[in-house]
């Protein structure tokens, strides 16, 4: 894909890059079509220009919604973390707790996953690593009751940030989505204006299903940001381009490992560059 003449192979190569990084069929078709139009108008002279134009298109989509999370404006700032099973919610919360305490914030965690085996123990282990308390009930308890107690405690103890961990749930399960709405309602009732951020966690290895996840979680809980995990493997996580664009959601954080400091702010430029690295 050098400075050669553009032929059908060039476009096919770009299409392969897009599809194999999970950008998705719909977005790929849109992006390639726009390139074809510009080719038709002779705006793009060679393979290099084509590639640059494509990268610029993707970057523009990500930049359109990009914004960093500001937790300073509210006290307590309530962050609700949701997503399908096993994407990295609890781990991301562990990393966030460390990041916030590192900035001198007082943090409290709520173990509102009362379903999965040893979910609360997992969150407690993370809490210990940054010296943060966890509000928990017994396994099988009502998650809304945990959240109720956690909100009360957050206000009473005057913490800066309350982070709520929830059980993994598939977005298609009506009863579990209702349970999550209830958690959301309890938070809003106890702390007006909260949750101030509802973070949807997506796994970088996820394909097109992430679009459906974002749609249904947004409908049910008013998602306000994305955390993209497991970018330290070979997965590119391209589906966030579609998710961010289609639902107007900023990607806030990326997860790049299992250690406590393996969390980064999302950087649209670096992310776009990585999509095009072999």
């Amino acid at each position: 894909l050098g400075k050669k003449e553009i032929d059908a192979d060039t476009l096919e190569e770009l299409e392969e890059i897009l599809i194999t990084s999970d950008i998705g069929v719909k977005t790929t078709v849109e992006l390639i079509r726009s390139l074809e139009q510009r080719l038709g108008r002779n705006e793009l002279k060679d393979g290099e220009a084509l590639r640059a134009a494509l990268k610029a298109d993707i970057l523009a989509r990500l930049n359109a919604h990009h914004s960093v999370l500001d937790t300073d404006a509210r006290h307590p700032f309530v962050l609700l973390v949701i997503g399908v099973n096993g994407v990295g919610k609890t781990t991301t919360i562990g990393k966030l707790a460390s990041r916030f305490t590192g900035k001198g914030k007082r943090v409290l965690l709520a173990a509102a996953d009362t379903f999965r085996a040893a979910a609360a123990e997992q969150l407690e282990a993370w809490g210990e690593r940054s010296g943060v308390d966890v509000v928990r009930h017994k396994e099988g308890a009502d998650p809304s009751a945990v959240v109720f107690d956690a909100c009360k405690a957050a206000v009473a103890r005057q913490v800066d940030i309350l982070i709520v961990d929830t059980a993994g749930r598939l977005h298609t399960k009506v009863n579990l989505m209702e349970e999550m709405k209830k958690i959301h309602r309890v938070i809003s009732r106890e702390i007006p204006g909260a949750p101030h951020e509802t973070l949807l966690v997506l796994d970088a290895a996820t394909g097109q299903n992430a679009v459906s996840q974002a749609r249904l979680f947004k409908e049910a809980a008013g998602v306000t940001g994305i955390a993209l995990t497991k970018l330290d493997g070979t997965a590119k996580g391209g589906i966030v381009v579609a998710v961010s664009h289609e639902f107007g959601l900023p990607v806030r954080y990326i997860g790049v490992g299992e250690a406590i400091d393996d969390l980064r702010d999302f950087n649209p430029q670096e992310f776009t560059d990585a999509l095009f690295q072999a």
């Binding site: 999970d22 290895a205 996820t206 097109q208 299903n209 070979t234 589906i239």
Partner: peptide
Amino acid sequence: MTGQEAVNVAGGFNERLDITGVVLTKLDGD
């Protein structure tokens, strides 16, 4: 729910371990 990565991951595990089979989880969604 895995996307295009599945070939790299499964290929890598199989190459190293010569797996004998696969379990496909979370098929209860869409």
